[in-house]
Every structure is written in C-alpha cells, then in structure tokens.
Nucleic acid binder design. Structure first.
Length: 225
DNA sequence: TGGTGATCATAC
DNA sequence: GTATGATCACCA
C-alpha cells in the first residue's frame, strides 16, 4: 500500500483500521505507505500524527473540521512515557481573540473538536528509537457530563478574560482541564486581539490545550494495554 | 524534573 | 498570516 487509506464510512470501519495498526512499530507502518521515518521528531513534530492520518484515511485536510468529517470524529495521538502516561499536553484549536462576543460554548471550536475523539496512544519514551515505537489500541471517547461541565467553565472563564482585553494576562497556570499557551511559529508571530483599553492590539497567537492530568484520566478509564 | 512558554514543518 | 500536525527546551 502506497496511497492514502480511503476514508472510513462508519465508526466500525474506523475501529477496524485501528485494530490493524495496533501493536505495529512506526517503522512497519511507515514502510506500508512508503514513508521514511525521520531520525527524531525535533524537526518533524507532527510526523506521527500525519502518518496515522494517512493510515486511517482522515478527510478534513487543513480545514477547521473534525479529521473524519463524515463521522464527526477528531483524531488525537497521545505520546506515552514508560509508565503509560501522557508525556505532552494535547493541542485542541486556536483561541479566537476577535469577534467572539456572544460566542456560545456549544458553537466553540473546543466543543466541536472534543465532542468525539479517537485517541491513539503511541510510545514516546525517548529511550526507544522513533522507528521502534509502537502504536497502541485506539479508542473512541466523548466527554461525560462532569468533564463537559469543567471544560465549559474553563472555556467561559478564558473567553470572558479575552473579551475584556485581558488575553496577555492569561498564563498556562490557569484552567482546570484546559490551558492557553502560545501557538505560533515563534514568539515574534502576531495576530490581532483586544488590548486592555478595549481597542485592537497586535498580540501573540495562542491555542487551547488539554492538560496531561486530564488526558491521563481519559487514558486510565479507557486504555487497555 | 515537570510544566510553561517557545518552537518546527508544511500547505495555502 | 492561518490552518494542519505536535514536541522541544529551558527554568523554577
């Protein structure tokens, strides 16, 4: 197989593709589509995610839509350390800094992307060479009511600060499940936001991320080794 | 040593 | 620049 997988037409079909790749190394999976495994991820940070998108047949491209558009499912990899815990936070989407007056939680990009997620754990212990790291058993997840309430509260608190021109006062220490951190090519990148005087102001683009404590909770409840 | 702030690649 | 995919790397 050297072409991208056709997009699955059902959750069952998607999970079948998942079972086929579970337990395989990144080398084996890359070979199956004639991709080359980079020496490390330093200059290829999104490589694993893109490889798995290819193998599972995502269809969104770089549209702001869930990866499997027809199924409404977002694909997220989880890098696991040697104790099967998440090594990194999970990027969700860009923080809207403008024109967000009246934006409701149910219409937010965070809500849309997290409503249904295919989590795909991948070994990420730095002691294991990239090519030898194995993909785990993917699982479908939707936030329960309790989780959804916390996410909504976090989101609403952040969006209130932003609409009040306080975006530059937000640090990654805030938020219970969500956090806001820079999401840009570098610290010189700029986008338009609202300043403390209520006027437009150039500022660093930021993204919503899920804390590892939250993704670890999801892992423990759903991931079978 | 873990979490926050910074950064990397690529398409358009 | 914005979107996609994330991990790096430094410092408290």
């Amino acid at each position: 197989m050297s072409e991208k997988q056709t997009t699955p037409q059902s959750e069952a079909e998607l999970m079948s593709l998942c079972r086929n790749i579970a337990g395989q190394s990144l080398q084996q999976l890359a070979d199956s589509v004639n991709w080359t495994v980079p020496p490390d991820l330093r200059r290829d940070k999104g490589w694993i995610g893109q490889l798995l998108e290819c193998l599972l047949g995502t269809s969104a491209g770089n549209l702001s839509e869930p990866d499997f558009v027809n199924l409404g499912i977002e694909l997220k990899t989880i890098p696991l350390n040697s104790n099967y815990q998440a090594r990194e936070t999970t990027y969700v989407c860009t923080v809207p800094l403008l024109n967000n007056i009246g934006l409701q939680w149910q219409d937010s990009c965070v809500f849309k992307k997290l409503s249904r997620v295919l989590w795909l754990p991948v070994e990420a212990n730095p002691d294991i060479p990239l090519s030898q790291r194995k993909v785990g058993n993917g699982f479908l997840w939707s936030p329960g009511e309790d989780n959804m309430d916390v996410l909504q509260t976090d989101w609403e608190d952040f969006m209130e600060l932003i609409s009040l021109g306080q975006v530059e006062s937000i640090t990654a220490h805030q938020g219970e499940y969500l956090q806001i951190r820079p999401k840009a090519a570098n610290s010189s990148a700029i986008t338009t936001g609202i300043g403390s005087n209520g006027l437009r102001k150039q500022t660093l683009p930021r993204g919503f991320y899920l804390r590892t404590a939250f993704t670890n909770q999801i892992l423990h409840q759903n991931f079978k080794i």
